[in-house]
Design a protein around this nucleic acid. Structure first.
Lengths: 198, 198
DNA sequence: GTCTATACCGAGATAGAC
DNA sequence: GTCTATCTCGGTATAGAC
């Protein structure tokens, strides 16, 4: 019988293993996350990884969930701000640090447990954003003739992720034009950005 | 002294190894591409992989280059068609089959040789698209007030890739609205799509 | 060019002491 | 909970016969 502790557990060792996994993934990719590397990075031994997670899928899912939870709350806060569209845009754009995201996407292509987790998470984010943006645009009046809520949400998400991805390759041709496309719309409905980015 | 044949070589064995690599990457991810698996898939032996490629980076770079070359020509053809914007959009959207692309992006995060290759390739595509779209929009008259060429090109690329990525997770909320955003613009400048997709 | 054989290393997994 | 020890498998790489 496998122990396979649930996510409610939060021992220091368990956290150290998750932190180590995140670090290794960022630096060398998901394929480099191995029991031995984890043990070395977390300054423990490989048997504890088995004790806490049982297998890699469980560990990856936990790690993804941890990050998604943070992002979700960040976006919730953004939507409660005085300029919710600007704040949402900034939150999405900041969070599109894709090195880690792309690792999970690649992983998901071949591991069902992770695919399911990302899919559920994506739908949850989309629902949050869509409901909020629908309400915000309605409150502002009529400008739904430019972008529907769905189009706007997907536009922000797509542009952010794609630009961040290219930035990682030091490619940035015409990026400013794409950013301006979104920000000119934000200015039109919500005025100039007032708060400086924190 | 390593043999490390250049890309000019095209022996059947070499091609078989590249084909095998592509298959394994698609099905199980880049991490599953190993000398033994390659040999098994290509029905040869692992020593030949060393003979032809020397190491994995070289093989991955060759494989990426092979695919990029095909895409580049596909886009060149698209741009020569009677409705170049529609054709370009379809070419980009069709080619955003991201399973393989995402593998390369993830790989690139940690392998310099591949990062460089993708960066160069991306710039080459961007230049082609940007030059062409600039000329096309100018020829059509004035509608640069809606999208600048750079914004349009990045919009098509971002939306395509992001939507394809989500499709892989069976997430498609509001996708039709994003597609419509682009296609309504295409209809406005280039009329209804005439050719059916091949 | 192609193959077999093999050296060597690090992967995941688990048994069992403490 | 934590650790050591150890099993087995599959990875890369290379030497050398044909």
């Amino acid at each position: 019988m496998k122990p396979a502790r649930g996510s409610d557990e939060d021992s220091p060792t368990r956290t150290a293993l998750l932190d180590a996994a995140e670090l290794i993934m960022r630096e060398e990719g998901y394929a480099a996350v191995s029991t031995r590397r984890l043990a070395a990075r977390a300054e423990t031994n490989s048997a504890l990884y088995h004790y806490y997670f049982g297998n890699m899928d469980n560990l990856f899912v936990e790690l993804f969930r941890r990050g998604a939870e943070r992002s979700y709350h960040r976006q919730l806060e953004a939507l409660a701000s005085p300029q919710p569209l600007w704040s949402l845009w900034e939150a999405i754009h900041d969070q599109s640090h894709t090195a880690l995201t792309m690792e999970f996407v690649a992983l998901a292509n071949h591991r069902k447990a992770i695919r399911t987790e990302i899919a559920d998470s994506s739908r949850r984010f989309r629902t949050l954003q869509l409901d909020a943006v629908t309400k915000i645009l309605a409150d502002y009046g009529k400008p739904a003739e430019t972008y529907t809520p769905g189009a706007l949400v997907l536009l922000m998400s797509s542009i952010s992720r794609f630009l961040r991805m290219e930035e990682a390759f030091a490619v940035d041709t015409a990026h400013d034009e794409a950013i301006e496309l979104i920000e000119s719309f934000l200015r039109a409905v919500e005025g100039e950005r007032r708060q400086p980015r924190p």
